[in-house]
Simulated scan of single mutants.
Amino acid sequence: MRTVLITGATGTVSSALMDALDGTGPHLRALVRDAATATGLHKRGAEVVVGDLDDARSLPPAFEGVQDVWLLTPNGPRAPEHGMNAMWAARRAGVERVVRLSVVGAAHDAPNRSGRLHALSDREAEHCGMRWTILRPHWFMQNLLNEAGDIASTGAFSLNMGSARIGMIDARDIAECAARVLLDDPGRHHGETYTLTGPRSLTFDEVADQLGRVLGRPVTHVPVSDDAKRKTLLGYGVPAWIIDMLEEYARAYDSGWGDFTTRTVADLLGRPPRGIADFARDHAAAFTPSGD
């Protein structure tokens, strides 16, 4: 039985990945910084280990006896260091394969710092000496859940991406693609970089229309300025570095940078990716006022 180490284990994609891998054969080992956050992981049948990608000395026990690593590092200025710590621990432990979650458009000349930082980690994966696969997903539909409170209470949501058209993807499809790679023979996807998108490139006005159709009431997208969005996010306590990064993405998307789709999800999964209507139906409760 192969052991898969899941990093970022309590996050959106990694949680969905553990759901996708549940009962498929591999032994799941979940890396967490705080054991107190691991209740749900135990329920999924995962072995929980404590370690911190920020502390290289904490990692060797987590990687011992592991064949496959799902490597997800949170966005931040030290993301390449955190990825490096994981890759070094993996190499020293004799890990056979790393499947890394990158970002759409990762490149040394990407128009956003997240893409440039991820490009550094992608390059390290490519030269790590292990089998490797890189997944580069587009904008997550689950990001809309950040707007769910406003949609539920006012029927409107505000973003600073103008008339951007984006090939957005459901995070569950990202997770299922990762599961497919991890369940296949280790050599099958070695050396591949997969860009993952949804089925259609959409504006947020179109997203609002689809949400409204599913919810049975009007939903409106209200474009706002970068400064207005920054003020809102600062009020929620979002770190300034993250806000700057999101602004860079917003400007890139507004310029048309995200207006594309690929067939990769369908090729990997043998079915079309979920559309925004599928996402809206499955998460309708989040966008509905309490008591309705």
Rank of each mutant, 00 (worst) to 15 (best):
2 R>D: 14
13 V>W: 07
14 S>Y: 07
18 M>K: 01
22 D>G: 07
24 T>W: 02
28 L>W: 07
33 R>A: 08
42 H>V: 12
45 G>E: 09
48 V>R: 04
54 D>P: 01
56 A>I: 15
66 V>N: 01
69 V>N: 04
74 P>N: 07
74 P>W: 14
82 H>W: 10
88 W>K: 15
90 A>D: 04
95 V>N: 01
96 E>G: 09
97 R>V: 07
98 V>T: 07
101 L>C: 01
119 A>Q: 06
120 L>R: 12
128 C>K: 00
129 G>V: 00
132 W>D: 04
132 W>F: 13
132 W>Q: 10
134 I>L: 11
134 I>P: 00
136 R>V: 11
139 W>T: 02
142 Q>A: 13
147 E>A: 14
148 A>L: 04
158 S>A: 15
158 S>H: 11
159 L>W: 08
163 S>M: 05
170 D>S: 09
174 I>E: 03
175 A>Q: 03
176 E>W: 03
176 E>K: 09
176 E>P: 01
178 A>M: 08
179 A>K: 00
179 A>W: 02
182 L>W: 08
186 P>K: 01
193 T>H: 04
196 L>V: 06
199 P>A: 03
200 R>A: 11
200 R>F: 04
210 Q>T: 12
212 G>W: 04
217 R>S: 13
221 H>R: 07
223 P>H: 09
231 K>N: 09
236 Y>H: 14
245 M>T: 09
245 M>E: 14
245 M>A: 05
248 E>K: 11
248 E>Y: 12
255 S>D: 15
258 G>Y: 03
266 A>Q: 13
268 L>K: 00
268 L>N: 00
269 L>N: 06
270 G>F: 15
282 D>F: 11
284 A>C: 07
285 A>N: 07
287 F>E: 01
